[in-house]
Simulated assay, not measured.
Amino acid sequence: MTTLAATPLAATPSPSPVADVVTMLRRNLLRAVRYPGLTMFLVAGPLVMLVLFVYVFGGALGAGVMPGVAPGADGRAAYLDYITPTLFVLTIVGAGQSVAISAAMDAASGIMARFKTMAISPGSVLSGQVLGTVLQSLAALVLVLGAALAMGYRPDADVLDWLALLGLFVLLGLALSWLCVAMGLNARSVETASNTPMILLLLPFLGSGFVPVETMPTAVRWFAEYQPFTPIIETVRGLLAGGAGLEGAVVAQAVGWTVAIGVAGYAWARSLYRRERRL
């Protein structure tokens, strides 16, 4: 009697998380090239606001944010110093809005469902989008900083301050990107995904982003002081000023809020990715 030897099945290649993340990161960056409108929005929005608020409103608002400054050219210079840190934060928020749209496009087109059937690391699909968004936001920050410098902005930050700013910007970019990815996956359509993160763009207006919270009515001031973006903006503002007047409690609040947003966004995004998209 002849015994047939069992033929071994071809082993399914195990996913490599690092290689898969790099592949998805490359895909995200290529999408940024193919959809230049989303990429231009990251820079165009903050630049328009920079020009508008400094050259149109800055002469008057600068005299309000900096006591003893006269309206006009001095006011514009003072307001440029005040608003530039806010626009850095808004640049990162705008990048989060773009990744929400990208995540919704992938979910609506069915490509994410296809990825689930492939031998790739499950976390790489979303991680590649998040990392790509962080890199794009950092590139956009350089352009916004260059525009502010051309307009006369002169930060007092030293090397350590710039390194701390870089760390905070990366942490904030990761946190907001994860949250916006979740918003995009949760949206019923791409149009809805583009509107949902708008609340993040409004919060700096309801904080210390454009005017000091001390000038606000009591109820609005209370909200402005205890919402996430006020300590984040104040930390950025303090580091750019060379640490002048920057309190440790404010930095702790900024980091704490950023970590909390990132953890919540990551958990929400992974949960939405695991389940089937509802039609």
Rank of each mutant, 00 (worst) to 15 (best):
L176Q: 04
L149N: 08
G123T: 06
L126E: 06
Q129S: 11
S177W: 08
L166E: 02
L141Q: 10
C180Q: 11
P122I: 00
L145W: 12
V170T: 03
L126N: 05
A157T: 10
A164N: 03
V142L: 15
A139M: 14
A175I: 11
A139G: 13
T133E: 03
M151D: 10
P122M: 01
T117G: 15
A164F: 02
V181N: 07
V144I: 14
I120M: 14
L174H: 07
L168N: 01
G173H: 03
G167Y: 12
W178L: 02
Q136T: 09
A119P: 14
L168C: 02
G123D: 07
D158Q: 14
D161T: 08
V130W: 05
L179R: 05
M118A: 13
G173Q: 01
L138F: 01
V159H: 12
G167E: 13
L126G: 05
P122Y: 01
L160R: 13
T133C: 13
C180A: 14
P122K: 00
L160F: 13
L131H: 02
L166K: 03
T117P: 03
L145R: 04
L126F: 05
W162Y: 15
A148I: 00
C180D: 11
G128R: 11
R154I: 08
G167M: 12
C180F: 06
S127F: 06
L168A: 07
G128V: 05
V181Q: 06
Q129L: 15
V170I: 14
Q136C: 10
L135D: 05
A140F: 09
A119L: 10
S121L: 04
V170N: 09
D161S: 12
V159Y: 10
V142A: 15
A182G: 15
G152V: 06
Q129A: 11
A164T: 07
S127Y: 00
L131E: 03
G123E: 11
A140N: 09
S121G: 04
M151L: 15
G128I: 05
L135S: 03
G132D: 00
L168Y: 01
V181P: 09
L166D: 02
I120R: 13
P155H: 11
L143W: 08
V181D: 03
L172Q: 04
L141R: 05
L174T: 06
G167S: 11
D156I: 01
D161K: 09
V144C: 10
L141Y: 03
F169P: 04
A157M: 10
S137L: 02
R154V: 12
G167I: 09
A164L: 15
V142T: 11
V142P: 05
L171P: 08
Q129N: 10
A140E: 06
T117M: 14
G146W: 00
G152I: 06
L179N: 02
W178I: 02
S137N: 04
A182E: 07
V181Y: 06
L176D: 02
F169G: 03
S121R: 09
Y153H: 15
S121W: 15
A164G: 08
L165I: 03
G123R: 13
L145K: 01
V125D: 07
D156F: 08
G128A: 08
V130R: 03
S124K: 02
A175E: 08
G123M: 07
L174N: 06
V125Q: 14
L141I: 07
L138D: 02
A147R: 10
L168K: 01
G152N: 08
M151W: 10
L172H: 07
